[in-house]
Simulated assay, not measured.
Amino acid sequence: MELRVDAKEMQTVLNQLFLKYGFSENKAILLSETFTENTLAGINSHGVNRVPVFIEYIKNGIVKIDAEAKKVQTFGTIERWDGGLGPGIVNARKCTSRAIKLAKKHGMGLVALRNTNHWMRAGAYGWQAAEAGCISILFTNTKPNMPAWGGKDSRIGNNPFVVSIPRNEGHVVLDMSLSQFSFGKIHEYDLKGQKLPYVGGWDKHDQLTKDPKSILGNERGLPIGYWKGSALSMVLDMLATLLSAGSSTYKISSRVHETGVSQIFLCIYPKLFGDDQLQQQLVDEIITYTHDVAPMKPGDRTYYPGERALANTIENSKNGMTINKEIWESILAL
């Protein structure tokens, strides 16, 4: 069953919740804002739905509420930071801000973060960079939840990947996991009692399936592009691990819970080129060209990355966010 909740109400409830669990006032505001923004964008799977799990991680001592990312090494425009196993959202916001600052000073800045926790909706930090006028390339490794192509057991992560491009009429923000469906999205389908629209992973009989419960039980997601997604997952894991001197998916697999992940925050400041009008024109002509096409089916249309998230935010700000009643009641109980 679903219900509608106003964004202001959600943010107030979540702020009180995070204060109750010992967060400072500033961190409670940052967390409640980010979880609410993610839900406003229609990404419940990495917004409100993740709050109970986040609280469990705090109770279990996996997320250190007082820890915060700190710089440990500097190499010109590249920096290494250590998250101290603090809240992933807080660490990611801070490292995105630092990468933006480096980019605005040098044209490009990269922050490689180790020992952090789940950053929830990866795209939130792409939007943050775009709002600051920066192009961004961001990614994280995860626990193993996909088989490497040709293998049976999960050995690679679905390593969420973000590219954002600032644009006057709506930022372009690609936010995708390297599994056909993120596991948060699979869980969302399961909550609704629905099948996936396409196969999303393997069941216990090694058959590709649309059944979310079967995939969640095995945590064997299907890589995007089959062998291509498998290879891309490995390379992103290698880059995140090498640049941060942090943990790989292999190391993360040895832990009971997914923690101590490695993340990359790369920002570029395009205003330094001095041709902002041309940049907007070039991006707009690509969007116009892809929009101007006959639909495959009546009622269908094309979207640029981030277009639907922006539309959802506008719609949900007016009419409230549709969320799972059971999830909301569990948050109120907390």
Rank of each mutant, 00 (worst) to 15 (best):
L3D: 09
D6W: 05
A7E: 08
E9Q: 14
E9Y: 00
T12K: 11
L17P: 00
L17T: 14
K20T: 13
G22I: 00
E25S: 10
K27N: 14
E37V: 08
L40Q: 02
L40Y: 02
G42W: 03
Y57C: 06
I58T: 08
K70E: 14
K70R: 13
G86W: 00
N91G: 08
I100W: 06
K101S: 15
L102G: 02
K104H: 07
G109I: 13
V111S: 05
N117G: 08
H118A: 04
R121S: 10
A122G: 14
G123L: 08
A124R: 02
A129G: 04
L138C: 08
T142H: 05
W149N: 12
G157D: 11
V163S: 03
G170I: 04
V173I: 11
L174N: 08
L174I: 12
K185M: 10
I186D: 06
Y189D: 04
K192E: 13
V199L: 06
G200T: 03
K204F: 14
D206G: 12
K210A: 12
N218Y: 09
L232H: 05
M234S: 12
L243R: 10
S244C: 12
S248A: 11
K251F: 11
G274P: 08
D276P: 06
D276K: 03
L278M: 10
L278D: 05
Q281D: 15
V283G: 01
D284E: 15
D284I: 02
I286S: 09
H291G: 15
P295D: 12
K297V: 14
E307D: 09
A311E: 12
N312V: 05
T313R: 06
N316S: 09
M321V: 01
I323Q: 01
I331R: 01
